[in-house]
Protein backbone atom coordinates (compact mmCIF):
# COMPACT_ATOMS: atom_id res chain seq x y z
CA UNK A 1 0.00 0.00 0.00
CA UNK A 2 1.36 3.35 -1.06
CA UNK A 3 2.10 5.88 1.65
CA UNK A 4 1.16 8.78 -0.65
CA UNK A 5 -2.36 7.38 -1.06
CA UNK A 6 -2.72 6.82 2.67
CA UNK A 7 -1.55 10.37 3.31
CA UNK A 8 -4.09 11.90 0.96
CA UNK A 9 -6.84 9.71 2.40
CA UNK A 10 -6.03 10.85 5.91
CA UNK A 11 -5.98 14.45 4.77
CA UNK A 12 -9.43 14.02 3.24
CA UNK A 13 -10.86 12.42 6.38
CA UNK A 14 -9.16 14.31 9.18
CA UNK A 15 -9.64 17.98 8.37
CA UNK A 16 -6.85 20.31 9.38
CA UNK A 17 -4.19 17.69 10.06
CA UNK A 18 -0.63 18.40 9.07
CA UNK A 19 1.21 15.42 7.64
CA UNK A 20 4.64 15.07 6.19
CA UNK A 21 6.30 12.07 4.60
CA UNK A 22 9.73 11.39 6.08
CA UNK A 23 11.75 9.65 3.37
CA UNK A 24 14.02 6.74 4.18
CA UNK A 25 17.04 6.27 1.93
CA UNK A 26 17.97 2.79 3.03
CA UNK A 27 17.17 -0.21 0.78
CA UNK A 28 14.34 -1.13 3.16
CA UNK A 29 12.31 1.73 1.66
CA UNK A 30 10.18 2.06 4.78
CA UNK A 31 9.08 5.68 4.60
CA UNK A 32 7.19 7.14 7.49
CA UNK A 33 4.52 9.70 8.18
CA UNK A 34 5.13 12.58 10.57
CA UNK A 35 1.87 13.59 12.26
CA UNK A 36 1.00 16.60 14.40
CA UNK A 37 0.03 16.39 18.06
CA UNK A 38 -3.46 17.89 17.89
CA UNK A 39 -4.79 15.44 15.30
CA UNK A 40 -2.74 12.39 16.30
CA UNK A 41 -5.65 10.56 17.93
CA UNK A 42 -7.95 11.26 14.97
CA UNK A 43 -5.34 10.08 12.48
CA UNK A 44 -4.72 6.95 14.55
CA UNK A 45 -8.36 6.05 14.93
CA UNK A 46 -8.95 6.67 11.21
CA UNK A 47 -6.12 4.28 10.36
CA UNK A 48 -7.50 1.69 12.74
CA UNK A 49 -11.16 1.94 11.78
CA UNK A 50 -11.26 2.68 8.03
CA UNK A 51 -12.68 -0.47 6.44
CA UNK A 52 -10.04 -0.88 3.75
CA UNK A 53 -7.07 0.05 5.97
CA UNK A 54 -7.85 -1.57 9.35
CA UNK A 55 -4.45 -1.07 10.97
CA UNK A 56 -5.67 -2.83 14.07
CA UNK A 57 -2.28 -3.93 15.32
CA UNK A 58 0.35 -1.55 16.63
CA UNK A 59 3.42 -3.71 16.67
CA UNK A 60 6.33 -1.61 17.78
CA UNK A 61 6.61 1.70 19.61
CA UNK A 62 10.04 3.28 19.86
CA UNK A 63 11.62 6.41 21.23
CA UNK A 64 14.52 8.17 19.57
CA UNK A 65 16.62 11.01 20.88
CA UNK A 66 17.87 13.64 18.44
CA UNK A 67 20.05 16.04 20.44
CA UNK A 68 20.52 19.60 19.28
CA UNK A 69 23.30 20.31 16.85
CA UNK A 70 25.62 23.23 16.57
CA UNK A 71 24.74 25.04 13.38
CA UNK A 72 27.47 27.19 11.86
CA UNK A 73 26.33 29.79 9.37
CA UNK A 74 28.21 32.40 7.45
CA UNK A 75 26.29 35.64 7.77
CA UNK A 76 26.99 38.91 6.01
CA UNK A 77 26.72 41.77 8.42
CA UNK A 78 26.99 45.47 7.76
CA UNK A 79 29.46 47.07 10.12
CA UNK A 80 30.99 50.47 10.40
CA UNK A 81 34.71 50.02 10.13
CA UNK A 82 37.01 53.07 10.14
CA UNK A 83 34.00 55.30 9.64
CA UNK A 84 32.97 53.51 6.48
CA UNK A 85 30.09 51.06 6.26
CA UNK A 86 31.37 47.73 5.05
CA UNK A 87 29.90 44.29 4.57
CA UNK A 88 31.77 41.74 6.67
CA UNK A 89 31.34 38.00 6.75
CA UNK A 90 30.98 36.55 10.17
CA UNK A 91 30.56 33.00 11.40
CA UNK A 92 27.54 32.61 13.65
CA UNK A 93 27.10 29.58 15.83
CA UNK A 94 23.66 28.65 17.06
CA UNK A 95 22.49 25.63 19.01
CA UNK A 96 19.36 23.93 17.75
CA UNK A 97 17.05 22.59 20.43
CA UNK A 98 16.88 19.03 19.17
CA UNK A 99 13.85 16.85 19.78
CA UNK A 100 12.60 13.51 20.99
CA UNK A 101 10.65 11.29 18.67
CA UNK A 102 8.18 8.44 19.09
CA UNK A 103 7.77 5.96 16.23
CA UNK A 104 4.81 3.59 15.81
CA UNK A 105 4.88 0.59 13.48
CA UNK A 106 1.38 -0.38 12.44
CA UNK A 107 0.21 -3.57 10.76
CA UNK A 108 -3.17 -4.99 9.98
CA UNK A 109 -4.03 -8.42 11.32
CA UNK A 110 -7.32 -8.40 9.46
CA UNK A 111 -6.04 -7.33 6.05
CA UNK A 112 -2.53 -8.71 6.60
CA UNK A 113 -0.71 -5.65 5.28
CA UNK A 114 1.70 -3.11 6.64
CA UNK A 115 3.78 -1.57 7.94
CA UNK A 116 2.65 2.03 8.10
CA UNK A 117 5.04 4.01 10.25
CA UNK A 118 3.90 7.03 12.23
CA UNK A 119 6.24 9.50 13.89
CA UNK A 120 5.61 12.26 16.41
CA UNK A 121 8.14 14.80 17.55
CA UNK A 122 8.42 16.88 20.69
CA UNK A 123 9.35 20.52 20.35
CA UNK A 124 12.51 20.27 22.41
CA UNK A 125 14.23 17.93 24.84
CA UNK A 126 13.83 19.76 28.12
CA UNK A 127 10.43 21.35 28.68
CA UNK A 128 8.01 20.81 25.84
CA UNK A 129 8.34 17.03 25.92
CA UNK A 130 4.65 16.11 25.80
CA UNK A 131 3.10 13.90 23.14
CA UNK A 132 -0.43 12.53 22.97
CA UNK A 133 -0.60 8.90 24.01
CA UNK A 134 -1.94 6.45 21.44
CA UNK A 135 -2.68 3.81 24.09
CA UNK A 136 -6.43 4.65 23.94
CA UNK A 137 -6.35 3.51 20.30
CA UNK A 138 -3.92 0.58 20.59
CA UNK A 139 -3.55 -1.05 23.96
CA UNK A 140 -0.25 -2.62 22.83
CA UNK A 141 1.38 0.80 23.23
CA UNK A 142 0.73 0.73 26.99
CA UNK A 143 3.98 -0.82 28.20
CA UNK A 144 6.02 0.50 25.30
CA UNK A 145 5.02 4.12 25.92
CA UNK A 146 5.82 3.61 29.59
CA UNK A 147 9.22 2.38 28.54
CA UNK A 148 9.81 5.48 26.39
CA UNK A 149 8.71 7.69 29.28
CA UNK A 150 11.15 5.84 31.51
CA UNK A 151 14.17 5.73 29.23
CA UNK A 152 13.71 8.89 27.11
CA UNK A 153 11.52 11.11 29.24
CA UNK A 154 8.71 11.77 26.76
CA UNK A 155 5.49 12.48 28.69
CA UNK A 156 2.49 10.83 27.04
CA UNK A 157 -0.68 12.77 27.79
CA UNK A 158 -3.72 10.55 28.15
CA UNK A 159 -1.79 7.41 29.07
CA UNK A 160 -3.76 5.46 31.70
CA UNK A 161 -0.81 4.49 33.89
CA UNK A 162 2.33 6.45 33.11
CA UNK A 163 5.01 5.22 35.53
CA UNK A 164 8.58 4.07 35.18
CA UNK A 165 8.72 0.48 34.02
CA UNK A 166 12.31 -0.75 33.84
CA UNK A 167 14.13 1.66 36.15
CA UNK A 168 13.01 1.99 39.75
CA UNK A 169 10.64 4.73 40.89
CA UNK A 170 13.25 6.89 42.63
CA UNK A 171 15.47 7.05 39.55
CA UNK A 172 15.82 10.51 38.12
CA UNK A 173 17.50 10.60 34.72
CA UNK A 174 16.59 8.99 31.39
CA UNK A 175 19.30 6.49 30.48
CA UNK A 176 18.60 6.15 26.75
CA UNK A 177 19.24 9.85 26.08
CA UNK A 178 22.38 10.41 24.06
CA UNK A 179 23.84 12.82 26.63
CA UNK A 180 23.11 10.63 29.67
CA UNK A 181 25.96 10.57 32.17
CA UNK A 182 26.32 7.54 34.38
CA UNK A 183 26.32 8.26 38.10
CA UNK A 184 29.62 7.91 39.92
CA UNK A 185 28.97 4.47 41.40
CA UNK A 186 32.58 3.88 42.38
CA UNK A 187 33.35 0.78 44.38
CA UNK A 188 36.69 -0.04 45.91
CA UNK A 189 38.72 -2.39 43.75
CA UNK A 190 42.01 -3.80 45.14
CA UNK A 191 43.77 -4.22 41.78
CA UNK A 192 42.18 -1.74 39.37
CA UNK A 193 43.22 -1.76 35.73
CA UNK A 194 42.10 -0.38 32.36
CA UNK A 195 38.66 1.24 32.47
CA UNK A 196 38.27 0.48 36.17
CA UNK A 197 41.58 2.21 36.91
CA UNK A 198 40.48 5.28 34.97
CA UNK A 199 37.25 5.35 36.91
CA UNK A 200 39.06 4.91 40.23
CA UNK A 201 41.49 7.74 39.44
CA UNK A 202 38.71 10.07 38.39
CA UNK A 203 36.69 9.28 41.46
CA UNK A 204 39.63 9.74 43.82
CA UNK A 205 40.51 13.07 42.19
CA UNK A 206 36.97 14.35 42.54
CA UNK A 207 36.46 13.26 46.12
CA UNK A 208 39.96 14.09 47.38
CA UNK A 209 41.22 10.57 47.86
CA UNK A 210 38.23 9.03 49.56
Amino acid sequence: MNLETIKSEIEANVPGCRLEIVPNNSPSGQHSLLIDHEHALFVASFLRDAAHLRFDYCSNVTGIDWPGKEITEKVKIKKILDGVEQEVEEIQKTQSAGHLEAVYHLYSMEKKHGPVILRMRTEDRAVRIHLPSLTPIWRSAEFQEREIFDLYGIVFDGHPDLRRILMWDGFEDHPMRRDYVEPDDYEYEPTPHDAVLQKAKQHLNETGGR
Binding site: N24, N25, S28, S59
Partner: peptide, 10 residues
Amino acid sequence: RPKAGEAYGR
Protein backbone atom coordinates in the same frame (compact mmCIF):
# COMPACT_ATOMS: atom_id res chain seq x y z
CA ARG B 1 28.81 0.43 7.56
CA PRO B 2 25.28 0.54 6.17
CA LYS B 3 24.02 3.68 4.44
CA ALA B 4 22.09 6.18 6.56
CA GLY B 5 18.47 5.12 6.90
CA GLU B 6 16.26 2.90 8.99
CA ALA B 7 14.62 -0.51 8.84
CA TYR B 8 12.25 -2.64 10.88
CA GLY B 9 12.59 -6.38 10.42
CA ARG B 10 10.40 -8.90 12.20
